[in-house]
Each structure stands twice: as C-alpha cells, then as structure tokens.
Amino acid sequence: DGIAGPRTWSLLLTDTGGFAGVPAGNAVALAKQLLKTPGITFARTHSQTRHNTSSAYANIVDMAAGRGALTSPGSHVGSKRVQLDPRMLRGLLTLHDTYGYRMNISEFAGGVHSKTSRHYRGLSFDVNVINGKHVGKGAPHKAVMNLCSQLGATELRGPGDPNHNTHIHCAWK
C-alpha cells in the first residue's frame, strides 16, 4: 500500500549484522531457523504444568509464525504473548552452529518461574540436555554457561544454584 506500518519499520530498523543471512534483530526469522536446526530440540511438555500450548516447542513455533510465545496461565503473569529476544535466539544458534552443542531446550516463556523471571519477558531459555547428557549428570553445563555469558547472557544458573540442579538457565537483559 506504500505506507510503512510498525512491522515494516521494525524490519527496516533492525540491525543488519545478520547471522547466517538472517538480520540480527529478526526474531521470527531466527525462530524459523531454530526449528530447522538438527541438534536443537524443544520440550513439548512442562515439568510443572499441563499447559502444553506454552511449551518450548509451542513457543518457538508460535514465534516463527509471528504470534509471539505464550506464557503459562498458571504462571505469575498469567497467559500472555511475549516476543522472544533475538539476541537470545541468536545465542542459542551460535552455541550449536559455532560451538557444536546439541541441546534440548526445556523452557522459553512458558512454565512457572520466580515472580520476576526473565522467562516471562522472552529473555531466557533453559537447557536440560547437552550433547545427549542430562544437566547435572555429566553434561558440559559449565562450558555452555560460560559461552552464554560471552554471547551476552547476564543471568546464568545451573547445578549448585537453588532449583537449577537439572538444567541451566541463560538470560539476557
């Protein structure tokens, strides 16, 4: 129609320092790429709630479709849509593509977390399996956490931290 709406402006103003041909700020394109990446899987259920339309898999599918990720109705924020942060998604792709880690993502925005959790703002992911090993049972979780920090994560938790003995948490600000 010749008129640039909010979505067009967002695409025009995103960082062009792309990742594998994807503009750096384009979370939808990054989510689509993650869905096609062998070696990165996404949990289809939660450990604390039965609301599977907010699972990590549902979150990444919804983000790839441009809908945003759904938080869980039983969470502190209720059910709402949030955008998954492109820096976080790019970090996840980098862990796989550059460093060769195969991972299962157990949570993005869904599930039940602390009241101020960055999950509810689409800024974090949890990983429960790395290279076929469960976190807390031989997985190289410290190496992945260190790389998350180098990739911009500012909140890192894992085995030894309260409530993180079976997964790592990497969150951006």
Rank of each mutant, 00 (worst) to 15 (best):
D1H: 13
G2V: 03
G2Q: 03
I3R: 12
A4M: 10
A4L: 14
A4D: 13
R7E: 15
R7M: 12
W9K: 14
L13C: 09
L13Y: 04
T14G: 12
D15V: 04
T16M: 13
G17Q: 14
F19Y: 15
F19W: 15
A20Q: 14
G21Y: 03
A24V: 02
G25T: 05
G25V: 08
N26Y: 07
V28C: 00
A29R: 04
L30K: 03
A31T: 05
K32V: 05
Q33R: 15
L34K: 12
P38T: 13
P38V: 03
G39C: 08
I40N: 01
T41D: 12
A43V: 00
R44E: 15
R50A: 13
R50T: 12
S54F: 01
S54A: 15
S55D: 03
S55W: 03
A58T: 10
V61C: 09
D62R: 07
D62H: 09
M63L: 09
M63A: 15
M63C: 10
R67E: 11
A69R: 01
L70P: 00
T71E: 00
T71M: 07
S72F: 00
P73C: 04
P73E: 05
G74P: 02
S75V: 06
H76W: 12
H76D: 08
H76T: 07
S79T: 12
V82L: 11
P86T: 01
P86M: 00
R87K: 15
L89F: 08
L89W: 04
D97N: 14
T98N: 09
T98F: 01
G100L: 02
Y101H: 14
Y101Q: 04
M103I: 14
N104W: 02
E107G: 00
G110Q: 01
G111N: 05
V112M: 08
H113I: 02
S114I: 07
T116M: 05
S117F: 05
H119G: 10
H119V: 06
H119N: 10
H119D: 07
R121D: 13
R121G: 04
G122E: 04
S124I: 07
F125D: 01
V127L: 10
V129N: 06
I130S: 08
G132M: 06
K133C: 04
K137D: 11
K137Y: 11
G138T: 06
K142M: 12
K142S: 11
N146M: 07
N146R: 14
N146I: 02
C148V: 01
S149C: 05
Q150W: 01
Q150A: 14
L151N: 07
A153G: 02
T154A: 08
T154I: 10
E155Q: 14
L156Q: 04
L156D: 00
L156F: 05
R157L: 15
R157S: 12
P162M: 08
H164I: 03
T166V: 13
T166P: 00
H167W: 07
C170F: 08
A171G: 09
A171C: 11
